[in-house]
């Protein structure tokens, strides 16, 4: 009986004092690389394992908060680059949005264990939603971008009404993004003039 007890001692990783910090650094580096499109060099196995161990050792909260901070930092950079891209604003916005969703998907992959166990047991918002919320709060709700966005959309619609050919695919993507974020209505409401004209146009485009 007593032998049995001895062998059951688990080979768990010993928690060193700075264990959590070190592990988080690995994950943070991974997230940065993902945003920088260097993810081909990353090992999913290593990152997943690090994230798994962190949650298992009850550093789920640290991981969760760290994720929010890191993503926010990248969003700030994106915001600047979108704001400065004056000429092709919608293009830039759409490109960044596509990048962002792809990156977030990969981040969700490596943090899957947290999404599965920490998030439900601690009643947190799932990573996917966190991603959308952050994008909405930092990009769409930025005053400058919001004005630019409304102006550009109006301009595109206006151009189409004048008989020009516009990029329907781009318009559709942007409007899809707004619906996904749940701010479609909100953006619409900020446009006071031509309201119903615009609603109709949007509906047509959103089809």
């Amino acid at each position: 009986m007593s032998n049995q007890r001895k062998i059951l001692k688990l080979s768990r990783i010993e928690v060193e004092p700075n264990y959590a910090d070190r592990t988080w650094q690995i994950i943070e580096h991974g997230i940065n690389q993902i945003f920088n499109h260097n993810d081909r060099e990353l090992s999913m196995e290593e990152l997943y394992r690090a994230a798994y161990n962190m949650v298992l050792h009850r550093f789920g909260e640290m991981q969760y908060n760290g994720l929010v901070v890191t993503v926010t930092r990248h969003l700030e950079e994106m915001r600047k680059s979108i704001e400065s891209a004056e000429g092709s604003f919608l293009d830039e916005l759409n490109r960044k949005w596509t990048d962002y969703t792809e990156s977030m998907q990969k981040i969700r992959d490596i943090l899957m264990y947290m999404d599965r166990s920490y998030v439900p047991t601690h009643h947190k918002t799932p990573i996917k939603e966190v991603g959308l919320n952050l994008w909405r709060d930092h990009i769409i709700h930025s005053a400058k971008i919001q004005t630019l966005l409304v102006d550009s959309l109006l301009e595109e619609i206006h151009r189409e009404r004048m008989g020009e050919v516009i990029n329907h695919g781009l318009m559709r993507n942007v409007i899809k993004m707004l619906t996904e974020l749940g701010v479609y209505q909100e953006v619409l409401e900020s446009i006071n003039a031509f309201e119903d004209v615009i609603i109709n146009s949007f509906k047509y485009l959103a089809l």
């Binding site: 990783i13 993810d39 081909r40 060099e41 990353l42 090992s43 999913m44 196995e45 290593e46 990152l47 997943y48 394992r49 161990n53 998907q105 990969k106 992959d109 899957m112």
Partner: peptide, 20 residues
């Protein structure tokens, strides 16, 4: 499934190495 498809190192390799 994600490891094999999400475009990171393992996706393009036919070897994977696990630790711990």
């Amino acid at each position: 499934a994600k490891m094999f498809t999400n475009g990171m190192m393992e996706s393009s390799s036919s070897d994977i190495s696990l630790q711990d």
